[in-house]
Every structure is written in C-alpha cells, then in structure tokens.
Design a protein around this nucleic acid. Sequence first.
DNA 1: TTCCTGTATTTTGGATCCAAAATCCAAATA
DNA 2: TATTTGGATTTTGGATCCAAAATACAGGAA
Lengths: 215, 215
Amino acid sequence: MTSRRPPTAQQFVLEELRRAITTGRLRPGEPIRQEVLADELDVSRVPLREALKTLQGEGLVGHRAHRGYYVEQLSLDDLREVYLIRDLLEAEAVRRAVGRLTDAGLAAAEAAQAEVERAAEAADVLAMAEANRRFHMAIFECAGLPRLVRLIRTLWDSTDAYRSVYYAEEANRRRVIEEHRATLDLLRRRDAEGAVALLAGHRAAAVEAIESVLG
Amino acid sequence: MTSRRPPTAQQFVLEELRRAITTGRLRPGEPIRQEVLADELDVSRVPLREALKTLQGEGLVGHRAHRGYYVEQLSLDDLREVYLIRDLLEAEAVRRAVGRLTDAGLAAAEAAQAEVERAAEAADVLAMAEANRRFHMAIFECAGLPRLVRLIRTLWDSTDAYRSVYYAEEANRRRVIEEHRATLDLLRRRDAEGAVALLAGHRAAAVEAIESVLG
DNA sequence: TTCCTGTATTTTGGATCCAAAATCCAAATA
DNA sequence: TATTTGGATTTTGGATCCAAAATACAGGAA
C-alpha cells in the first residue's frame, strides 16, 4: 500500500504546478510570481520554492538568479531533441521489457489499453492521455530498470503540454488505439524488434503531427 | 563572459554538497542533518534545503517525508544501470558530435586532454578527474544537443564518487590517457563509429574496474 | 523628443521563528 | 526478560520577517 498519509504541502504544490503547466494554465515563457502563486495555493513561499526547484530539475521551469522562475518553453528544436532522447531510451526499455515480460506486466498494459479505449469512446482527451501514459509505463516497467523508467517519465512530463495537441484530433486518437493493439500483439509474441520499430513510428507520428500544428 | 557575480548561497551550497558527496566526505546512506550542515556551511537551512532538492532531482540524495534527506547509495545494479543509460546517450552524442565537429570544439577537447596529462604527471587524481570530465563534455557539446548533454552530465554526477576509485590506480590513469589520444585521432579523421566503439570500451573498462573493487 | 540618472517599488533570496511529525528513552506491564 | 506505552527531545516542514537585487518610473540634460 502506498503511504496513506496527509500529503505534505510540497507534494500538493508540485502536483498542482505540474498540472498548471502541462495544461497550459501557466503559459510558456511566463514569469512565475511567487507571492501570487503562493496565495492562490494557500501556502507560504517556502514549499512553493522547493517544488519549483524540483520542477527546474525536470526542465519544466527555468530560473535566473534574482530574476526568479519562469515556465520553460520548448522550441521546436527542443521538442525534437526530447523525442530523440526518448527514442534512444525507450527503444532499450522495450527491448529489455520483452526479454523479461511477465504475465502481470502484460496484464497491466492490457488493462491500461482498455482504459485508453474507454476514454477514447467517451472522447475524454485528458483521461485518454493519462491511460496512454500508464500503458507505455506499464511496458517500460517490465524492463526492471527503475532509473531508466524515471528518466523516461520526466521526459514525458516535459512534453505533456504538447501531447494534448496530438490527442485533440480524432484521427490521431484512432491511430493510437490501433498501434497500441498492434504493440500488444507483438509483445505477446515476444517480438522485441517489431515492438521497438512500431513504437518508434508511434513517436515519429506524434512529433510530425505536433510540428505541423506548431510550425 | 560567464556572469561575474557574487554567487548566490544556494549555488555555493550546491557545489559544496556535490563535492562532499562525490569525495565521500558525506557517506552513502548517511542521513543529512540539516542544522549541522547549515552551521558548517554558515548558511541558514533554507538555501541548504533548496540545494538538496536539486540534488534529489539528480539522484544524488534521497528524501522521505518527515524523515529528511540522506545520501543516496548506488548498488552495483544501479551503477550498471547508469552506465547502460550512458552508453545509449553518449553513443548518440558522439555520433552527432563527429558530424558537426568544429575546429574550436576539437581544440577544446585537445586542451582538456593536455590538462589530463599534466594532472596525471603530477599524480593529482582530483584534477585529472575534472579535466577528464571537461574532455568528454567538450566532445559531447559539439553535438549541439544541450538537453542531451545536460542529462549525460547529471549521470556523471551520480557516479562521481565511484570514478575516484578508478583513478586511484596508476594503470587506469595510463589507460585513460592512451584512450583519449586514440579518441582524438579518430575524431580528427571523422571516424564516428570508431570513436563510439572506443568510448564504449572506455566505459566498460571503468565499470569492470569499479565492480572488481566493490564486488 | 530621447536618453540618462537617481530614487521608489516590487520581487527575489535568506534568516529566523513556530508547529508537527518522528525518534529516543525510561518506566510499567505481561 | 521482552515488549509496550507515555512523554521529553530532536528534527523536519512551513510561515513570517528582513535584506539585497532588480525593475519601474519620474525628472532632468543633451
């Protein structure tokens, strides 16, 4: 059981900030006024600042001495770079995952996929994005490389804001579902290279779609 | 010109803490007593805590709610995992670096290598480790992928403590110098795959040496 | 007008203070 | 003796307060 304990203010602020940034409520480039945010979240500036420090480590916000924090904005080049790094890391994660795939791991991915489809049905973009994340993470987790998974997770965080653009399109949502099904098939057959290639295409399509919108 | 400005307390504390951890003055697993450390560094607990938060993001320290921070210790598995991730990222960085290698970049690497050799001559292990880092980073920087380089840098940080073990041996120091020279040769000839392979061996040797000491 | 320049205001960075959680330790009980 | 329990102590988490840096702005000179 994961600690049922009143969450510390920092954790609360951290979650809240992540949401605010990835949903775009705090817009890229915008300076973060500590006092204002602290008042809004009803905490003092101390836990806020600590949360911002971890967000800085994840690349979601930037900081300049005596000028304060600001929401980091990804250029198109940055986006491509993040996806390049993801290609490198996720390919390895999938390769390893296939090698040590367990029934439980596969079941977790299947469960997540069921949620993805349910969310797509209901046209609930946010829920779909979340379930999609669980689907992929479930697979990565099987690799048994916790640090690698943690890195991948923070890379996902840093581009969350853009992924919503992708899911906005009905066609993309259908595509995601198809590719997930195909991925599960390949996993069941323990076809590592097939899965790696498929997921690489999966990412490439996302990048391309996002680029075409932003470019 | 890199800002000549009185460094903020946080930056000072951050550097100091990194040094303390990577040199082993703060030992793995050891809990970090904030008040004590703050007194030692002659700052209040606030900037200390913020520095610890960034260190946590880098994986150098861990944190548990209401129990505080502690120096993260890497198991052998963790060490292998970090080096696996480095393999993936650095291979790509080198490949790209060779493609867009500039005279300035090459010169930077050569300058760093000169320092490595000077430090080795003087048997100054710490200076050698630092120069070695500059050598590799100089190469990676040429890739023109700042996020990738930043990731690699934090991976290096997380294993700095172990690298000193490697440099303690005279034979290893000689080996490093040889391999660096060979690397520079390959770079001058724009032999990307050769450099990638050589540096992979470079890392493998380090892991093996460290394992044999700790195992 | 445009460009300085010096001052008021805002905002961040850091120190101190307070509350809450965890640890420690001794006495009491089974 | 081993274990539990109740408080004293320590240590962290958070709020408030103060200092220093940056920004905004008004007035003056070219």
